[in-house]
Simulated scan of single mutants.
Amino acid sequence: MSAVDEILQQIPLSQLAAKLGTDEQTAGAAARQAIPALLGGLHANAQDPAGAASLEGALGQHSSALVDGGVDLDQVDEGEGRKIVGNIFGGHTDGVAQTLGGTLGGGSQSDLVQRLLPILAPIVLSYLAKQMGGGAGGGLLGSVLGGLTGGAAGGGGGVADVLGGLLGGGQPGQGAGGGGVTDLLGGLLGGGRR
């Protein structure tokens, strides 16, 4: 099962749809696009050693409690989520939301994606923290998630390789549910996926 599917299984779509003011199908489709984008953004940031160190620090501060036994979206701190999204995408957040919103059909859904990203960002970090088992350090993160994804390919080491593995190990057409979306965002994010 892909990381995207594992994360989606933890999220109650009816609660997510109610928070977003949309139907479950739209909420699920948007989440299926946004999760790989968040992972892709983390991967792009982790290509830089300072970005990788920052991510490892953030993972050390996130508990897996948010995803243990399923997510209660009332427990998600959207203010923290906005900070995480800002750290991941920086000044490209609006462009990411427009790109993702355009893939959902039915006209632009960028406003929906803007509201969704801060909900999903803490969940994604909590999921990664759970995979680490609460440990810290790029080596442990790499070995735990590398095993989860069947090994990671690419350069940069540590967290960059882990996220590359979650995104499909750099092998075209074998992404973990991201594929086209993360490819679309690759140029926008300035690295990582092409």
Rank of each mutant, 00 (worst) to 15 (best):
M1V: 13
A3Q: 02
V4F: 03
D5G: 14
D5Q: 13
L8K: 09
Q9E: 12
Q10L: 15
I11L: 05
P12M: 07
S14Y: 11
Q15R: 15
Q15M: 10
Q15K: 13
L16T: 15
L20V: 07
D23I: 00
E24R: 14
Q25T: 14
G28P: 09
G28M: 00
A29Y: 06
A29N: 14
R32I: 02
Q33C: 13
A34I: 15
I35V: 14
I35F: 04
P36L: 11
A37V: 04
G41Y: 05
L42Q: 13
A44I: 10
A46F: 06
A46L: 03
Q47R: 11
D48V: 00
D48T: 02
P49R: 03
P49S: 07
A50R: 08
G51H: 06
A52D: 11
A53E: 12
L55D: 00
L55V: 12
E56H: 06
E56K: 11
G57N: 14
G60C: 07
Q61M: 06
Q61S: 11
S63Q: 06
L66K: 05
G70K: 10
V71M: 08
D72K: 10
L73Q: 01
L73R: 07
D74T: 14
D74A: 15
V76F: 06
D77K: 05
E78V: 15
G79L: 04
G79P: 15
R82K: 12
K83T: 15
V85A: 01
G86N: 11
N87L: 08
N87A: 13
T93S: 09
T93V: 12
T93R: 15
D94V: 13
G95M: 10
V96F: 02
V96K: 01
Q98D: 09
Q98S: 13
G101K: 06
G102M: 01
G106F: 04
S108E: 12
Q109W: 07
Q109L: 04
S110N: 05
L112G: 06
V113H: 02
V113P: 05
Q114A: 13
Q114P: 00
R115E: 11
L116G: 05
L117T: 01
L117W: 05
P118V: 02
L120R: 02
A121K: 05
A121N: 01
P122T: 01
V124T: 05
Y127N: 00
Q131Y: 08
G134Y: 01
G135I: 01
G135L: 03
G135T: 03
G135P: 08
A136L: 07
G137I: 06
G137M: 03
G139K: 15
G139F: 14
L141V: 03
V144G: 04
G146Q: 01
G146K: 00
L148M: 13
L148T: 15
G151K: 14
A152M: 05
A153C: 05
G154S: 07
G155N: 11
G156R: 01
G158T: 01
G158M: 06
V159H: 09
L163G: 04
G164V: 03
G165W: 01
G168F: 06
G169N: 10
G170P: 13
P172H: 10
G173M: 05
Q174V: 06
Q174E: 09
A176V: 07
G177M: 04
G177P: 13
G178E: 12
G179V: 10
G180R: 13
V181S: 00
D183Y: 10
L184I: 10
L185P: 03
L188I: 12
L189G: 02
L189P: 03
G190A: 04
G190T: 08
G191A: 02
R193D: 10
R193T: 14
R194F: 08
R194Y: 11
